[in-house]
């Protein structure tokens, strides 16, 4: 974008020779300088429940916005390393992959698990961190189901319950696939916060969401505090590596993003960034 702008400045229509050779040299230098920052990227970050626009301040984020803040900080660092001019927007998780497919954005930071279905839609960066899914419930519901069930309550043993999930998430896709067989009522909501709120409001019996998201949304001051049910789940593509998503046909960008991530790991900036936001090591 910068190159055409420079060209117009130096060679206005009908004014040949105005800049002369010196001007041409200056323009060439500007073109070269412009090409160094010529990459422009539109970056989408999964919508934080509180903030509607990305926070550009250094103020400490609220715990529930930590993941979005981490993604935003990571996106900024990657853009800096790519010497790219990036435009950041918050978008609902469900809209990120379609936006990538429609070329409305180039990079999506939505904590996407790598699944076969998504591989057909988008390309993935190298792994950012590792996730598993967990069931949450209120202590009362958990106790009730524990009494009803002879064995441990797990995702596979759920029957005739309401389960809240983030819309378009892998958890959502899985529950939809087993909803009929397990007689599950799936509540697809926009954010993890909404899922927890649905649980607290007894609109849902269980929430199925990724572990880190659940940890960040849980409020220790609430009584009764939701509890985790059953072990962590990595089967059915409900756990694994989390990635940045980008267009499948933009292999050059993917390679550059991967190189930037590798550099961040090597120079220690990625672990520091992670530790600044989260108390445990999941990368």
């Amino acid at each position: 974008m910068a190159a055409p702008l420079s060209a117009r400045m130096c060679f206005p229509a009908g004014s040949s020779g105005v800049c002369g050779r010196l001007g041409a040299l200056c323009c060439a230098a500007l073109v070269c300088a412009g090409s160094a920052v010529g990459l422009e990227l539109r970056v989408a970050i999964a919508r934080a429940p509180v903030l509607e626009t990305p926070a550009n301040t250094q103020a400490a984020p609220k715990p529930t916005a930590l993941l979005a803040d981490f993604n935003f900080a990571l996106a900024r660092e990657i853009c800096r390393r790519l010497t790219a001019k990036c435009v950041y927007t918050y978008q609902p998780f469900a809209e990120i992959i379609p936006a990538i497919e429609d070329k409305r954005i180039e990079l999506g930071f939505g904590n996407h698990l790598r699944t076969k279905a998504r591989e057909a839609q988008v390309a993935f960066s190298g792994p950012l961190w590792y996730s598993s899914s967990r069931l949450l419930s209120t202590p009362a519901v958990a106790e009730r189901f524990a009494r009803q069930s002879a064995s441990e309550v797990t995702l596979d043993t759920l029957r005739d319950v309401r389960v809240a999930v983030v819309s378009a998430s892998q958890q959502h896709a899985y529950l939809r696939s087993v909803a009929d067989t397990q007689r599950l009522q799936v509540l697809d909501l926009a954010t993890a916060r909404e899922c927890i709120e649905a649980l607290n409001a007894e609109q849902a019996d269980f929430v199925l969401m990724y572990g880190l998201g659940a940890y960040l949304e849980l409020d220790a001051t609430l009584q009764p505090t939701p509890v985790f049910i059953g072990p962590g789940i990595i089967d059915h593509e409900l756990g694994g590596s989390v990635h940045i998503v980008l267009a499948r046909d933009d292999d050059a960008l993917r390679r550059r993003v991967d190189l930037a991530l590798d550099d961040m790991r090597r120079d220690g900036s990625y672990p520091r960034l992670w530790r600044r936001h989260f108390p445990v090591d999941l990368y």
Partner: peptide
């Protein structure tokens, strides 16, 4: 109790780490 609950959340998060589960 809040600190203890927070610690319990972290325990749950760590025990569900894919590397732990692997």
């Amino acid at each position: 109790p809040v600190a203890r609950q927070q610690a319990l959340f972290i325990v749950s998060l760590l025990s569900s780490h894919p590397a732990m589960l692997a």
